[in-house]
Design a protein around this nucleic acid. Structure first.
Length: 674
DNA sequence: CGTCAGCGGGTTTTT
DNA sequence: CCCGCTGACG
């Protein structure tokens, strides 16, 4: 069967010069865009227009080669990168076309696939998605069960590492049995974890990938459907793929082999998550294209970046160059304390604002989420003069990306657990979380008894609860608990019915009322302020659901779990004029005219937990990624004393700072104005 | 069964 | 500093 667009795709060989959209690219960029058949490796240095190439390549396929947008699949690692790519594609080819292209993270792509196909693997479509926290609690529980009360949970370090490794390989319970393990406890725990998830009708983040692989391997017909649909596959940040993701990509590309991978070994920063740089270094390519001209940064910034990354031994030599001017030197300041460091950054932000930059042109990047605290405090306290109205404003608008905060709050987790249990009553984790919230007189001891019983009978907890509610099972002396369970079961049944019909947000409101959650908060929480805060969060959750009226309950839960930002960001308009705060990891793939890297101290960057040699090189790459986010101006900062875990400790400047040639930077006082 | 004080432990990074 | 957990008590 000869598709129209397959024939058309060969037209890149014709003398026809493709229209407008790729005219402004440099030679290797254009080559990358026009090489649409076969296995293409694009080695793209930082700021070399990698995203631009991907987006133009998609546009070229659609507009010039008549490839249907639905035949293109672009995979990224972070939601932010996927969103950025979509945004840029929209400006290039318009929303209607861009919307039809599948651009998503590995995990959400797999989620979409499994939503449709998971029944082939023996799960139901209502399966739950467990985030890292859910998984952690489950592991804890299983560990306790396995060790009994004797073992005082000995060093779980090696075990956790072994579990992570198996997960990165994408092992199923059966595969784990045959795999090589350091110790049998780790293996048993992993096997037990996988089988328990399975019995809960639940999948972990890693399962999203591994189950999709299994689906494709066990159901060649299904795989073929996806291969037929997605004939053009592109993977961004390919250096970050782990073994499972690698397998998945190869499966999808196996038939047509139109696989374009883009990446940079110098920006490999997910080794801790099982990423293997060798995937990009050993990629079997029909065409290899190197992008080495940097368009993003001034030559000072680029020179600093090159000098820093040059200290890594384990890398491929490249020669990033820029035609740009030297411009300002990099600024470095060392403040007495973390608070003053934050104030120094805020003062500089205000200077740039006065010079005409938008807040959204500026970003503050840091190694770990905890570092945002002091920054936020300083941003909230700042007073600045609006250059247009000349009015004095209190607080600089900012947005923190990626922090877990909102989704991690107890009340949100409670409500989501309700939704999860309603959608998937087999989700024991969710069930146990909310069965006694608010208090229904069901004690932990009683629940232990029940879980033990359902394990030995091999009956889902929910079924047992139903039995109890119907009076088929009696527990003399536990009248209160039995009563609580009955009302809980009835409530959940009623809720499940109600959630079948939209609007979902109204049903959630009903549920919150039905469980008297407001009263529960009022009884639980002492401080008036906290109560208000929590109640606001509950309202936020309703609002978030209202934003997803067209989705099913399951879709809402999945989106929320896969993209924590999504549950809170709907209130803030995207693209609002705010300073961006984020970790170095989530900044990858992004660029900002004005960049601040804060907390550049030994122990933070490089992080104390990764001071071993290989770890150190990854930390350096992280620094490199940070430096290369800056387009026009870069400020590096540190503090001589920093509050950590409630204690203020002296610190030393990051060893990486010594790797920047003196000629490239200017040391300044932390205060801009006195 | 629920509450509350006291304590010990832990901070990388993301989906 | 901020949790989650524990164990004693009401």
């Amino acid at each position: 069967m000869e598709d129209r667009y397959v024939a058309a795709a060969a037209s890149h060989l014709s003398p026809f010069y493709p229209p407008v959209n790729i005219m402004k690219l440099n030679e290797p960029q254009e080559k990358a865009v026009r090489t649409v058949k076969g296995r293409v490796l694009v080695l793209a240095g930082a700021g070399s227009g990698k995203t631009r190439v991907i987006v133009h390549r998609v546009a070229h396929l659609i507009q010039d080669l008549n490839v249907p947008p639905t035949a293109i699949l672009g995979l990224t690692f972070t939601n932010k990168a996927a969103a950025e790519m979509r945004h840029r594609l929209e400006t290039l080819i318009g929303k209607p076309l861009a919307k039809q292209v599948t651009l998503s993270t590995f995990h959400s792509f797999c989620m979409q696939v499994l939503r449709k196909e998971i029944e082939k693997l023996g799960y139901t479509r209502e399966f739950s998605l467990y985030d890292e926290g859910d998984l952690q609690r489950l592991i804890q529980q299983l560990t306790r069960e396995m060790l009994g009360h004797e073992g005082e949970l000995p060093s779980l370090g090696p075990t956790k590492a072994a579990l992570a490794d198996a997960a990165n390989q994408g092992f199923s319970a059966e595969e784990a049995e045959g795999g090589t393990w350091h110790d049998s406890f780790s293996k048993d725990l992993y096997v037990r974890l996988q089988t328990t998830l399975r019995s809960y009708n639940a999948v972990s983040f890693d399962n999203l990938i591994s189950l999709t692989i299994r689906l494709f391997e066990e159901h060649p017909k299904t795989l073929e459907q996806y291969q037929e649909r997605f004939r053009y596959l592109m993977i961004d940040e390919y250096q970050d793929t782990n073994p499972a993701q690698f397998r998945l990509a190869e499966l999808l590309a196996a038939k047509y082999q139109n696989l374009c991978v883009v990446g940079d070994d110098d920006q490999s920063i997910y080794g801790w998550r099982g990423a293997e740089v060798k995937n990009i270094l050993q990629f079997k390519a029909d065409h290899t294209i190197k992008l080495e001209q940097n368009y993003r940064s001034t030559s000072n910034i680029l020179a600093a970046a090159n000098a820093v990354i040059g200290h890594n031994k384990n890398r491929h030599e490249k020669k990033l160059w820029s035609a740009g001017s030297a411009s300002d030197p990099i600024e470095i300041f060392n403040a007495p304390t973390d608070l003053e460091e934050a104030q120094g950054v805020v003062q500089r932000l205000m200077v740039w604002k006065e010079k005409g930059f938008k807040w959204r042109d500026m970003a503050v990047l840091y190694r770990s989420n905890a570092l945002s605290r002091a920054m936020e405090a300083a941003l909230i306290q700042a007073s600045w003069q609006n250059p247009i109205s000349n009015k004095w404003m209190r607080g600089i608008p900012y947005e923190v990306f990626g922090g877990l905060e909102f989704a991690e709050r107890g009340e949100i987790k409670d409500l989501l657990a309700y939704l999860r249990a309603i959608a998937n009553p087999q989700d024991e984790e969710a069930l146990l979380r909310i069965i006694n919230v608010p208090r229904r007189g069901i004690s932990d001891a009683f629940l232990d008894k029940l879980t033990q019983e359902n394990r030995s009978l091999n009956v889902p907890l929910w079924n047992l609860l139903e039995e109890i509610a119907q009076g088929n099972k009696t527990f003399p002396g536990h009248a209160r608990a039995v009563g609580g369970i009955s009302s809980f079961v009835n409530l959940m049944k009623m809720a499940a019915k109600r959630f079948e019909t939209p609007p979902l947000s109204e049903t959630l409101s009903w549920l919150i009322e039905a469980i008297n959650y407001k009263k529960a908060i009022e009884e639980e929480v002492k401080s008036e302020k906290m109560r208000e805060f929590k109640w606001e969060n509950v309202q936020e959750c309703i609002n978030a659901l209202a934003q997803h009226e067209n989705d099913s309950l399951q879709d809402f839960i999945a989106t929320t779990t896969l993209n924590r930002q999504s549950i809170e960001s709907h209130t803030k308009q995207t693209n609002e004029d705010r300073v961006h705060l984020m970790t170095l990891h989530s900044a990858k793939g992004l660029e900002f005219p004005i960049c601040f890297l804060i907390g550049l101290e030994d122990g933070i960057l490089p992080h104390e937990k990764s001071m071993k040699q290989t770890g150190l090189e990854e930390e350096r790459r992280l620094f490199y990624v940070g430096i290369t986010r800056a387009q026009k101006h870069l400020t590096l900062s540190m503090a001589r004393a920093r509050m950590r875990m409630g204690k203020t400790n002296p610190t030393n400047p990051s060893r990486f700072l010594h790797e920047i040639p003196k000629a490239l930077f200017k040391a300044t006082d932390h205060k801009v104005f006195v």
